[in-house]
Design a protein around this nucleic acid. Structure first.
Length: 266
DNA sequence: CGGGGCTCCTGTGCGC
DNA sequence: TGCGCACAGGAGCCCC
């Protein structure tokens, strides 16, 4: 479940360790992970190239290579990038010319790797809404004005705003004191403003703490992120709200579990 | 175009 | 104790 803060953390971690390295060999232990081009072409094209830059768009990790092309990685639910790696359980392993290995681990095989000429032309990227940190409140307000769904589903809608997933949608709404089922149109201007501020605050704090390690997410070093200890509602079904002590509830929205406090969130 | 529901996967944790 | 099954959720897709 890497979301924006986790992918940002991985990007930052990787920048410290693999920029400038030359890819010597690519091991496709599970070729299914490679979505474009064919696994054979993917492997052959990558070998010999250097990693020039690493950046992030939404939950997508993008490596700029020395031939001007781009390696994109989406970790989906259970993807991990570990360096230095070398695990037998990795799905894809990238070995650099110094012998060190970057492992792409992915228990559930939802992850997707691509080698493309222009990452901006990916259909996935074209459908993405803006980055939260690029928005002003007036942008956000204008975006909300057109929407009719509940606020939780909208925060997770990557075509509306990109990078927020199930954990941070819940945490943002708790801090904004807004119930997840609220329709967007029912929110007051003050609530929209609080929501906007809390979105940026929660995401930046999570980045500062290296992301949330629940289930599979780990940093590139293999160590957990530190933000889960700041979670107020996610994965706390039946436990007492830190603010009002009433039990945290869980409902399903759009097929996803939503944790919230009935008393604090209105 | 929007929203609901299914799908891809597999490890975990629950109930019987 | 062990088995079977629901469940976890990011994003694409189909359908109405």
């Amino acid at each position: 479940m890497p979301e924006l803060p986790e992918v940002e953390t991985i990007k930052n971690d990787l920048q410290q360790v693999i920029i400038g390295k030359k890819i010597a060999r690519v091991f496709l232990h599970n070729p299914k992970i490679v979505r474009f081009p064919s696994p054979a072409k993917f492997k052959k094209s990558l070998e010999g190239l250097r990693i020039k830059k690493i950046f992030r768009r939404a939950k997508l990790l993008i490596f700029e290579l020395s031939d001007g092309r781009f390696l994109t990685m989406h970790l989906k639910m259970t993807g991990q990038l570990v360096y230095p790696g070398g695990s037998k359980n990795s799905r894809v392993a990238i070995q650099f010319s110094d012998g060190s290995i970057l492992d792409f681990n992915d228990q559930r095989l939802f992850g997707e790797l691509r080698l493309v000429d222009d990452w901006k032309k990916l259909k996935f990227v074209q459908h993405l809404g803006p980055e939260p940190f690029d928005l002003t409140f007036s942008d956000f307000e204008a975006m909300l004005a057109k929407k009719k769904t509940n606020i939780k589903s909208l925060l997770m809608d990557q075509s509306f705003i990109s990078g927020i997933g199930n954990i941070y949608a819940a945490e943002i709404l708790f801090r904004a004191k807004i119930a997840p089922e609220r329709s967007v149109q029912s929110l007051t201007k003050n609530q929209k403003s609080t929501l906007f501020k809390e979105t940026k605050k929660v995401l930046s704090s999570a980045i500062k703490h290296g992301g949330s390690s629940v289930d599979d997410y780990v940093r590139v070093s293999g160590k957990p992120g530190d933000y889960a200890r700041f979670h107020r509602v996610y994965n706390r079904l039946g436990k007492n709200c830190f603010t009002c002590k009433s039990p945290i509830k869980r409902i399903t929205q759009g097929g996803r579990g939503t944790y919230f406090c009935v008393k604090c969130q209105k």
